[in-house]
Amino acid sequence: MSNLNRRQFLSASMLVASFGLAACGSSSSDDATSDAPEGTFTFKHGFDLDYPPYSYRTDDGEIGGFDVEMAQAVCEYYGWQYEPVPFNWDAKDGELNSGSCDCIWSGFTMNGREDDYLWSKPYSDNTQMIMVKKDSGIVTLADLAGKKVGVQTATSAYDLLYDEEGQAALRETFDGGEPVVFETYTIAFNDLQAGAIDAIAIDVTSGNFLMSGKDEYTFLDEALGSEQYAIGFRKDDTELCDQVNAALDALVADGTYDAIGQKYPDIYDYLCLGK
C-alpha cells in the first residue's frame, strides 16, 4: 500500500468521479423525459411517491399510480411533454410556487385548503376512517377513549384531528390527548400489527391499500369525515387549470378516466367525475 503511486491514485480518483457524474446525469426526475419537438409545453407533474395508489413506485420499480396515469393522459390529449416531479411532500409549496412543478396532483385533499390553491374540479371522493384489528373490541369512535391512535404527519386525517370543527374533540379522548404521529402510514401500520398502537386514523383509499390481503383488519363503521381530491395549481395559473379541467371532461367522455380507474380497484368506487 505504501507504494501506491500518484498515477494509481489519480486513476482511482477518476473512477470514483465518473461514478459521481454518472449518478448526477440521471438526476431527480426518473425517466419519461422524451425528446419532444422544440417549443412543446412541458407539463411538470408534482407528486409524492409515498402515496399509493395515486402516485407510487409500481411493482416494476417505475413511477405510476392513478394520478400519474391521468396526468399522462392529459398530456397525451394536448400533445404536451410529461415531466414527473416526484417531490418531498413537506416542500410541496416551494416546489409549486418556484415553478419546479406546475401542479400538485397526488391524492391532494382540497377541503380546508380551498383558498390556498387554484383547484381543478374534484376527481375522487375520500373518507377519513379509523382502522383497527377486528378482535380489538373497538367498535365505535367512542371506544377510542384512552387508546393509542396513529396518523401520518401532514395528511388530511391529521389535520382533521386538530380541526375544531372536525374531530379535535375526539382526539382529546385519545391516550395522552394526542395521536401518535408517524412519518409514513407504512410504519404506522407496522406498529398496529405489532400492537404498539390500537388504531390508525387514515383515508379510506390508503387504508384499503394497506389492508388488502390481510383479513384481520377493518374500518369502524363510523367515518371520521369526508373529503375530496383535486389538482392544486398556482393561484394565478387559471389558463392551465382551465385546460386541465377541459381535458378531464374529455377523458371522462371518451372512457379513459373509467378505464384507468378500473386498474385501481381500491379507489375505483370513490372516483367522482361524471357521476
Binding site: S28, D50, P52, R57, G61, A91
Partner: peptide
Amino acid sequence: LAYQEVFSLAKQISAS
C-alpha cells in the same frame, strides 16, 4: 429536494 437516493426509494417502495 426530491433526489431519488436510496433511502427515498426505500420509503417509496416500502409504501407501495
